[in-house]
Each structure stands twice: as structure tokens, then as C-alpha cells.
């Protein structure tokens, strides 16, 4: 199957009769990347599914207004990241009542996740990542697992490249310390 470039997809989307077809291609191209990006932030499959679905609903609604000031890829990632962070913030508000932190909630979710088939050391790595502050955690995931470029991350997270490099450096250090001491 032909893989369309982002520019081609946007051109297709501009044509009223091909709008849905173009969106279908956007979905095919990005659904897995977006799902895994969200999953690493929210941990649970069910939550990741909800957030991913909401992300694509938003993309469908906002795509007509997309002016191409940034790349389609970074724009989609930005929507997904914001949706995941909004989800965690809503979770935080609910969790306040039960006197636990969202980090604790995510750790419990990870330990009881039926869709986690990693080894013991992989579980330990995930727990180490959950110890990081939210923004640092997202930076670590994007760089370490997705091997994303700093300039792309900078567009998605609206943070300078320098700040992202420093954030990743600190995150690696903390993860290493956790793995060493646990």
C-alpha cells in the first residue's frame, strides 16, 4: 500500500469529496505511533484507548483549520500529548479524594496491567520512569523509546532544545540511579 506524505494527505483533505478518505489515511499512518505515545504516559490500555480515540476525534474536528504552520506529524503528537496530560490532570482531581498520588495510581496500574508482558527488569525500568516528574517522563519516553529528534520534540512540547536536552540528561541519571539502587 502506498504511504502518503503529510503534504499529500493535507492536499487530499482539502478536497471535499476526499476528506474522509484522507482522514482514513491519516489514521492508518499514525494510529499506532499515537497509541503507543499515549500508552507510555497513561500506562493502562483502556485509558490509552480512550485518550487515543479522543485525540483522533479532535484531529478530525480541527484538521480543516490546520494551516500547515507546523508539520502534520508534530501537530498530531501535540494534540495527543495534550490529551494525555489533560487525562492525567483529571485523574489527579479524582484521586485527591482517595489520598493517593497519580504516580501511585500509575504504579498500581502498571503492576496489575494484564497487557504488560515485559521481563522483571523491564518492569523495574517502567517503575523508574514513573518516579520522574511528568514532563521529564514524557521527554524520556520520546527520546529513549521513540528516538525522536530534539527539534521535533521542541515543536511538540513547546520547549527549547536546550531545556529538553537538560531534562533528558537529568531523567537518564535518575533512571540509572533507580535501577542501581533497587
Amino acid at each position: 500500500m502506498i504511504e502518503y506524505s503529510d503534504i499529500e494527505l493535507l492536499e487530499l483533505f482539502q478536497q471535499p469529496l476526499k476528506k474522509e478518505f484522507a482522514f482514513g489515511l491519516v489514521l492508518k499512518k499514525y494510529k499506532k505511533q499515537i497509541y503507543w505515545h499515549i500508552r507510555k504516559i497513561v500506562i493502562s490500555h483502556d485509558d490509552a484507548d480512550d485518550v487515543a480515540q479522543n485525540t483522533f476525534v479532535k484531529i478530525w474536528k480541527s484538521l480543516p483549520e490546520f494551516r500547515g504552520e507546523s508539520k502534520l506529524f508534530t501537530w498530531i503528537y501535540r494534540i495527543a500529548t495534550n490529551e494525555a496530560i489533560t487525562f492525567l490532570n483529571q485523574k489527579k482531581k479524582k484521586i485527591v479524594i482517595s489520598f493517593t498520588s497519580v504516580e501511585e495510581y500509575l504504579k498500581n496500574t502498571l503492576e496489575s496491567d494484564v497487557y504488560f508482558s515485559g521481563s522483571e527488569i523491564q518492569m523495574k525500568l517502567q517503575k523508574a520512569i514513573l518516579e520522574l516528574p511528568e514532563k521529564q517522563r514524557i521527554v524520556f519516553n520520546m527520546k529513549y523509546f521513540d528516538e525522536m529528534q530534539y527539534d521535533e520534540m521542541s515543536e511538540i512540547l513547546d520547549t527549547s532544545v536546550g531545556a529538553l536536552k537538560a531534562s533528558y540528561h537529568h531523567a537518564v541519571k535518575k533512571v540509572e540511579d533507580f535501577l542501581k539502587n533497587n
Binding site: W36, R39, K40, H45, D113, Y115, F116, S117, G118, S119, I121, Q122, M123, L125, Q126, Y144, F145
Partner: peptide
């Protein structure tokens, strides 16, 4: 660990 792949299903 990076080479071990995705631990999530």
C-alpha cells in the same frame, strides 16, 4: 533494555 522491545501489549 532498549533492544528488548516493547513490554506493553
Amino acid at each position: 533494555l532498549k533492544n528488548e522491545g516493547n513490554p506493553f501489549d
